[in-house]
């Protein structure tokens, strides 16, 4: 579960993340990835703290955080549902699975449900093409997913 940010732990976690990469600001992308792993997302305070400690201008940190798909500036749900939209999955109908998920969850890809249970996102090919369409929920792979299965799959996670 994501850690809740406080002034102290932000300061410390940023310091530790930087130390892991030899205090080299060139490793910004990985520093941010590690911090996102801790907090679940990149908050404004966090990015400001990163900028302060790395001495990389905030405008540049902000561009990196909004440029790469790995980063999110909004809190995420308890479960992240990733729909692979790689070519093989697309040809096998992953867009239909995605549409169904959007319907059932009531959010668009890239968004999080209001109850902070689910974040729905698309992912560019996870390299499990033989399994298409692939859906990954918090790291667990589901292969050959059909729109019919979506509802019960979501229900299963809701009731956990």
């Amino acid at each position: 579960m994501a850690e809740v940010a406080t002034v102290e732990n932000l300061e410390q976690n940023v310091r530790e993340a930087m130390a892991r990469y030899g205090n080299n600001p060139a490793r910004m992308i990985e520093i941010l990835q590690d911090l996102q792993d801790i907090y679940g997302y990149l908050s404004k305070d966090l990015l400001k703290e990163v900028s302060r400690q790395t001495e990389v201008p905030l405008a540049r940190v902000y561009h990196i955080a909004t440029f790469f798909k790995a980063f999110t500036l909004k809190p995420r749900g308890k479960y992240t549902i990733q729909v692979c939209t790689g070519t093989a999955c697309h040809v096998k109908g992953s867009y239909r699975v995605l549409e169904r998920l959007e319907d059932v969850l009531g959010v668009r890809a890239g968004d999080t449900t209001d109850d902070l249970m689910f974040t729905l996102e698309t992912v560019n090919c996870v390299g499990a093409c033989a399994l298409g369409p692939v859906v990954i929920i918090n790291g667990k792979y589901y292969g050959h997913v059909t729109p019919v299965q979506v509802e019960s799959l979501i229900k299963e996670y809701r009731e956990r």
Partner: peptide, 20 residues
């Protein structure tokens, strides 16, 4: 030498702005 402004995002949703 100030980096007061920058870009946000990518593709056609890219824009020039101040952080946040």
């Amino acid at each position: 030498g100030l980096h007061a402004i920058g870009f946000e995002g990518r593709g056609f949703t890219r824009k020039v702005c101040t952080p946040f």
